[in-house]
Design a protein around this nucleic acid. Sequence first.
DNA 1: CTGAAAGCGCTTACAG
DNA 2: CTGAAAGCGCTTACAG
Lengths: 346, 346
Amino acid sequence: MEVTQKELAELLGVSQMTVSRALNNHPHVEEKVRARILEVANQKGYSLEANHAAEMLRRRGRGEPATTHVICAMLHLKHDANDDESFQGRILKGVGEQAREFKWEVVIPIVTRLAIPLVVARKQVDGAVRMLHQEEADSGHIALPVPWVSVLFDVPNVDVVTVDNQAGARLVGRHLADLGHRQIAFIGPDSTISHLRLEGLRQAVRAVGGDLPDSHVCLQPYAGNEESTIDLVDSLLKKTAFSPSHKPFTALAAYNDHMAVAAMRHLRLRGIRVPEDLSLAGFDGATPRGFRGTQVTTATIPLEKMGTEATKLLELRLKEPKRPPQRLVLETELRPGETTWPLVTK
Amino acid sequence: MEVTQKELAELLGVSQMTVSRALNNHPHVEEKVRARILEVANQKGYSLEANHAAEMLRRRGRGEPATTHVICAMLHLKHDANDDESFQGRILKGVGEQAREFKWEVVIPIVTRLAIPLVVARKQVDGAVRMLHQEEADSGHIALPVPWVSVLFDVPNVDVVTVDNQAGARLVGRHLADLGHRQIAFIGPDSTISHLRLEGLRQAVRAVGGDLPDSHVCLQPYAGNEESTIDLVDSLLKKTAFSPSHKPFTALAAYNDHMAVAAMRHLRLRGIRVPEDLSLAGFDGATPRGFRGTQVTTATIPLEKMGTEATKLLELRLKEPKRPPQRLVLETELRPGETTWPLVTK
DNA sequence: CTGAAAGCGCTTACAG
DNA sequence: CTGAAAGCGCTTACAG
């Protein structure tokens, strides 16, 4: 059990108040007394932090801001790969760097899906940078007892850092169109963001007289992992009776790079060459773990910047709780890779 | 600001005590009153967790255990790759799975190197599973205000889950010896564990009349990343005047797989074929990120198990603070890969 | 320069 | 069944 100011006071024959003043470097403590107090406190291993709960409670009483200098990164770190090059890892890197600037610590909770982390429920963090799970976004159960900034997902009355998914997808679509593709297919989850990307692709290809008809679209509620991507590819191929000799579409766009890489592996297993038989594009520019193969054509999201900007918005929010919610839209960039080829007309 | 029991009580015209009883499902509250209280509490968004600090403080007063049901994973997640296949990621996976069994949450702090995370200093976690940094192990500044279990590093009076590094290295050494190698070299950090592995290798090769002399050893204080490995390889080659036509040693053992892979890349760049010109072995069996190439010969550490066992030890420690510290030694296993070849004698 | 009082929110006894 | 008191550790006024 930790030592308290009261115990130090009794040990030294002074009042607890004097101990408090000495430890907090307040004036009006005789230098000799202060020195002695600090000495004993140090020797006994006194730590103000260890009795942090008391201070928090006291501050409440006075309506003083009870800041912890800790923020929470609520990302999907158990969900997919998590390192400096992954989607989540790159956002986290940005958060960490900006937090360091603000002299904040970051904690990452490992939590049952969709649960509010205890450190957040207990307000042991000042706020959070959070990427919602699709289920959360759908359910609308997203309230937290601390301010937070949403990454990627649009949330009413919450600060948001995102990208223009539709515009980014238009870049990809235009790239495909420029290569001569007119019939495009799409696979992805059945989410708001997925529909935005689909719409962007569609706009771009329609602008040149092509199409991305619903018959060339395969969606699954929470697609994202290897298996669901394989399922989607199989469904799409079956539904459209696609084969290298019969091509209802000549380019396939996936919701993100992770799915694009999984799709490429599966397509190749099924004997469909990428990009010779089928051009393939992704979205986001995050390198899936262990993938050192063909560079996927994509629209890149500045993920580290997303993390830093979200953290900056959180700081503004904490400083000025009443400020109007801000929506920051970062730029995507087309990054042509090796998976898209000009359409060869026979 | 969160609503308090007192506020609810005033709202309902009952005492704060009655509110407390109702919220905690205590008996002796009239059913009608309880229902009404729960209704209003729910509507006002009352949360006991939000006033967690008060409860912690109160428990202190009564000497009651103030458990948080949260533990801290103090691993090196910013240091090297961090995903389900990396060294740290695999330990974390084990911790997470075991914590779930105990119905604990895990938080990972991102912290300036060697600092004690605020959540730990504030005792907002019940304990920690921790892998020390080499500097910490050297400095001896390792005290925490909560119980913790050390992973890999031996620490006096602290529960430890580790492996027999020397025995594991003997397995590697014996494997090299069985392939005919008699002169072995070693690169690694200059740490206790590194010296144990070196010694194990040496014992094995000496047992068959070979050697791993100090002249074939290159150490660097905190080696581990790509650059330091390259430096160590270069130093070793220079010091021993190694070339494919002049081989003072025929096998190189690295401190861990991460270094082994980095060494392999660099050796190949320098025109030294692995394993044709030089056999190469690692230690730990953790796959470095993005590495899908040659499988490295190694002695594997059961990293997930390290995580689960450390978490179990932490649970025992929390349940019984006075129990004698335990040292659990897990088994390593030789995993022959494609980087070691039989010695070809001319 | 020093100290006693107040109060944050909570639950456990202790009284009705 | 219901409530008033006590006390966890801390700092801010308020008195000496």
